[in-house]
């Protein structure tokens, strides 16, 4: 691992410098993770008097449980929708803004600030707009003949959380797309123009392929965002309902562990989620390594 050509020779000092970080890491990250791992192999009886080592039973039950399989499917639909929706909108905005010279800065400012809005706050705002009795969007849909009710209809609820989650993520994707567009040498687009490609053709044959590293990166980041950071959106609005239609995996861990007090199952779910994050982290780092080579 890299360090400086010459280093300071103190023996104790580096450990002292690392101590706060490592202490927090050990106490609040590694130890709980280890606990989750241990607990995922245990089961408590109904009264919490005895615990029993059950091998992989908690995991087996999970994969046989309809509600967990449902939660996986819901997560997949949710994450894909959020990633696609926020990436497509952000790409359109970034391409449009990239063509602007004087107004680019202003448009950017107007688009990026929702990054600072908490997911929970975003959720509540959209919940308000979609509120079946007083929300403006449900009112408009009623006018158009559709009776919106995310409290009863699972699809409506899913659409609500997808929109609220994507809305917040547009700013982030927009910034990275704009940076990616800035990195494309102007001479390339000019060469394509001389070769007779019009603006639309240039976008699909030059710009989009050259943006593919950024797009790939954003897909990973957005899926991770949708899987883990949207807990607040779900909790502040649908609470996983109606009828588990928006019960994504992170919400289910919380629900089973805290509300249902099913510790063994919740721990097993935690371990599975850690495995998923590990895979994504790995993909992300592989991507960065590749980017360095460019």
């Amino acid at each position: 691992m890299q360090s400086k050509r010459t280093v300071f020779s103190n023996r104790a000092l580096p450990y002292m410098l690392l101590a706060p970080q490592l202490a927090v890491t050990a106490i609040f990250f590694l130890w709980p993770a280890a606990q989750a791992f241990r607990q995922s192999f245990l089961r408590e009886d109904a009264f919490g008097f005895s615990t029993q080592f059950v091998w992989f039973d908690n995991y087996m039950r999970l994969f046989q449980s309809a509600s967990y399989l449902n939660s996986m499917a819901v997560t997949a639909v949710f994450a894909t929708s959020v990633a696609v929706l926020s990436i497509v909108i952000a790409l359109a905005l970034a391409v449009a803004a990239n063509g602007m010279i004087r107004s680019q800065q202003t448009y950017s400012t107007l688009i990026i600030w929702p990054y600072a809005v908490a997911p929970a706050v975003a959720g509540v705002m959209w919940w308000f707009m979609f509120n079946p009795t007083i929300g403006i969007l449900s009112y408009l849909m009623r006018q158009a003949g559709y009776n919106w009710n995310h409290g009863l209809d699972g699809t409506d609820a899913m659409i609500l959380v997808v929109i609220a989650s994507s809305w917040k993520q547009i700013s982030y994707n927009f910034l990275f797309f704009l940076a990616g567009l800035h990195a494309i040498p102007r001479s390339l687009t000019e060469a394509a123009a001389i070769d007779g490609a019009g603006p639309i053709k240039r976008f699909f044959t030059i710009t989009l392929p050259l943006l593919s590293p950024t797009t790939f990166f954003l897909v990973v980041v957005n899926v991770v965002y949708a899987m883990f950071d949207t807990f607040a959106v779900i909790h502040a609005t649908t609470e996983g309902g109606p009828n588990q239609a928006t019960n994504i995996l992170v919400y289910k861990v919380f629900d089973d562990g805290f509300i249902g007090l099913n510790l063994g199952s919740s721990a097993a779910q935690s371990v599975i989620l850690m495995a998923i994050v590990t895979v994504f982290t790995f993909i992300q780092f592989r991507y960065i390594e590749r980017r360095v080579e460019y």
Partner: peptide, 27 residues
């Protein structure tokens, strides 16, 4: 600095990336 367990410390910090609070809520 160069010191014993430097790489270990680095990886211990790295691992926290894979342990967001949402996935280890109860413990």
């Amino acid at each position: 600095f160069r010191f014993p367990f430097r790489a270990l410390a680095f990886w211990a910090i790295f691992v926290t990336l894979m342990l967001p609070v949402e996935v280890r809520i109860v413990p």
